[in-house]
């Protein structure tokens, strides 16, 4: 008697859970270890433009296509294999439409805790991606604005670097600095990295390239403003900057630059 009660409660709970999943505005899908669809909620059916009866037991990748499908990159596959939850972005094509999504994949377990498949929770992120692209566009614009080369004195130019240096920006910095060395007939260029929070090997490599390109144009390049933390980290990394003139502060760098052009700060 008691047992019957419990089981009928369970059935009710399952129905309620299904009902909730069907109300969600995102896709929820469960597959077994061979990617046969065990469950798909209403939104999922809407996206695929099909009824659950038609998709049940069939391969998920026959109804949804993405760059991850049928590869080791499939996060559901990884979730089942590594027993871990994954959240990832992708672009899917389903029901004749292609849109960006974020999917959460976790392993599906039976009562004894064995992994018997995977659950996938998929959100349409078209709007979010649009906004992010705008923000990224803006930050790119700011980055481009922030590498001004200043003529400090006859023969001396200075480039204060602020913020994070990535590959794209590093290229820009090199170009800016080199063309201004030529324009101003500079013999000394100061590259101030006080405003750069972190220098890893890729940034260091860009600095080294800038220095040797500058030398080819006949200019000495002085790097100033390494913080103690950055200096220590670079040494541990094994980056050798000993061929480069470096000064602790911009002030020292400027006075060094004046010495190099044959003037003295009084």
């Amino acid at each position: 008697m008691v047992n019957e009660n419990v089981s009928s409660d369970n059935v009710e709970n399952v129905d309620i859970a299904k009902d909730v999943l069907n109300q969600l505005p995102c896709m929820v899908m469960a597959v077994d270890l061979d990617f046969n669809i065990l469950f798909l909620n209403n939104t999922g059916c809407e996206w695929m433009g099909d009824d659950f009866e038609n998709v049940e037991g069939k391969k998920c990748y026959d109804f949804v296509q993405s760059s991850h499908c049928r590869t080791d990159n499939c996060r559901v596959k990884q979730a089942m294999k590594n027993d871990r939850k994954y959240v990832w972005r992708n672009e899917i094509t389903t029901g004749g439409k292609t849109f960006p999504i974020e999917y959460t994949a976790s392993p599906l377990r039976d009562k004894d805790g064995n992994i018997v498949g995977g659950v996938e929770y998929v959100i349409d992120i078209t709007e979010r991606v649009k906004i992010e692209e705008e923000v990224q566009e803006h930050s790119r614009t700011i980055m481009e604005l922030s590498t001004p080369v200043i003529k400090l004195w006859e023969g001396i130019v200075i480039l204060p670097l602020v913020g994070v240096i990535d590959t794209m920006r590093a290229q820009q910095i090199i170009e800016n600095l080199l063309s201004s060395i030529v324009e101003n007939e500079a013999t000394v260029a100061i590259l101030d990295v006080t405003g750069v929070p972190m220098i890893d090997t890729s940034v260091a490599q860009h600095i080294l390239k800038t220095v040797s390109a500058g030398k080819m144009l006949g200019a000495e390049i002085i790097i100033t403003g390494f913080s103690p933390n950055v200096a220590q980290t670079l040494v541990t990394l094994g980056v050798d900057l000993s061929d480069i003139i470096t000064c602790g502060s911009l002030k020292d760098g400027v006075s060094k630059a004046f010495t190099l052009v044959g003037r003295k700060l009084v």
Binding site: T201, S202, L208, L237, G238, V239
Partner: peptide, 20 residues
């Protein structure tokens, strides 16, 4: 190993990170 790279970098990334 220090200085080994396949991608044209400085080859200090992996060994350097280990030391850090």
């Amino acid at each position: 190993e220090d200085g080994y790279t396949t991608g044209g970098g400085l080859g200090a990334g992996l060994p350097g990170a280990k030391r850090l």
